[in-house]
């Protein structure tokens, strides 16, 4: 007999709150409030979808990678993203939803993915910039999630973060190599950083004042830092990296504030961000159409696998 079988809801809820308060993990078979479960499914699914959609902008350059070494690195990286999607869908499945249901939520537009992937990749430098800034911002967002209150999610994130760190280093190394190359390559890197800096800042979500879900997520231990805290941290860490690389971050308001011990910086274009969230970003339609086509093209294969498994079981 477990606590869950007979205890009334208020006792269960106190038990749940106490687990959270001790910074212990909630596990799949533990009682949890419905709101907690829903929030987690939404967040983990959105994260998984982001990994899967995120394969497209970088996948765009696999066929044109300019050296065999870079081709291997990029192909392996995009493959890792599929792997991250896989662990995260598995973590979501422990909450009673299937991968297929979640995929259908994605392609019907009922669940979202990170808006960063609605920006186009226009040069090979973008492969490096995505590694450095986009994976970098993802790491800032995700490292605290290794300590998130839901066990399967936190454990998936530990592995995801290790691999993301590796990707980020590879991206930075590509940019550093290009900066040692020709003038055209240096210009290509700067142009790419100009395009991705602001969208990278958007990855932390709207300013805290406009982020309605943050407070509850923090109380439940799902989220560990506010959007603005993480954004500040990302800016502070990126500035010396940009200097070492020899690129300029495209923000005239960016300056070290001695008093605060942090950099002051400008705000991204939140209207453009909202357009992306609403589905009107530069590549939303393209990304969704790609995902939908791949899923629909694969339907007969999945049906065949199911039919074959059923025949095997019957024989």
């Amino acid at each position: 007999m477990t606590l869950t079988d007979h205890a009334p809801d208020d006792v269960l809820e106190r038990h749940f709150e106490a687990t959270i308060a001790r910074n212990d993990r909630i596990e799949p078979r533990d009682w949890m409030p419905e709101g907690y479960r829903k929030t987690l499914v939404r967040q983990i699914a959105q994260h998984a979808h982001s990994e899967i959609i995120g394969m497209q902008p970088e996948g765009n350059w696999i066929s044109r990678a300019p050296s065999l070494r870079r081709k291997a690195i990029l192909l392996a990286k995009v493959q890792d993203e599929a792997g991250h999607g896989l662990y995260l869908y598995s973590a979501a499945e422990t909450l009673g939803v299937s991968r297929l249901e979640l995929t259908e939520m994605l392609i019907s537009g009922r669940q979202k993915y990170s808006s960063i992937f609605n920006y186009p990749t226009l040069s090979y430098a973008d492969v490096g910039t995505i590694g450095w800034l986009v994976d970098g911002a993802a790491i800032c967002n995700q490292v605290p999630l290794c300590r998130t209150s839901y066990g399967p999610y936190g454990r998936a994130m530990i592995r995801v973060c290790k691999e993301e760190s590796f990707h980020q280093r590879q991206g930075y190394e590509l940019l550093a190599t290009m900066m040692r190359g020709t003038d055209e390559q240096r210009a290509m890197v700067q142009e790419s950083v100009n395009r991705f800096w602001w969208p990278a800042l958007m990855m932390f979500g709207p300013p805290d004042a406009d982020s309605p879900n943050t407070a509850q997520s923090m109380a439940w231990g799902i989220k560990r830092n506010t959007n603005d805290e993480l954004r500040q941290k990302f800016v502070d860490m990126s500035v010396p990296q940009a200097e070492a690389l020899g690129v300029t971050l495209p923000d005239p308001e960016l300056i070290w504030n001695e008093e605060r011990g942090h950099h002051d910086f400008g705000q991204p274009d939140w209207e453009e961000f909202m357009e992306g969230v609403k589905g009107n970003g530069p590549c939303n339609a393209q990304r969704m159409a790609h995902r939908r086509r791949a899923h629909e093209d694969g339907a007969w294969v999945r049906e065949a696998a199911t039919a074959y498994a059923a025949k095997q079981a019957a024989s």
Partner: peptide
């Protein structure tokens, strides 16, 4: 084979096909 990346019927096959492409690329190098 690498052209299949992000286009396979399921995630497991996407990963398997990229893996095959990576092995062949390693041999090619």
């Amino acid at each position: 084979i690498a052209e299949w990346t992000s286009n396979a019927p399921d995630l497991e096959d996407d990963i398997a096909l990229s893996n095959i492409a990576l092995d062949l690329l390693g041999q090619a190098r």
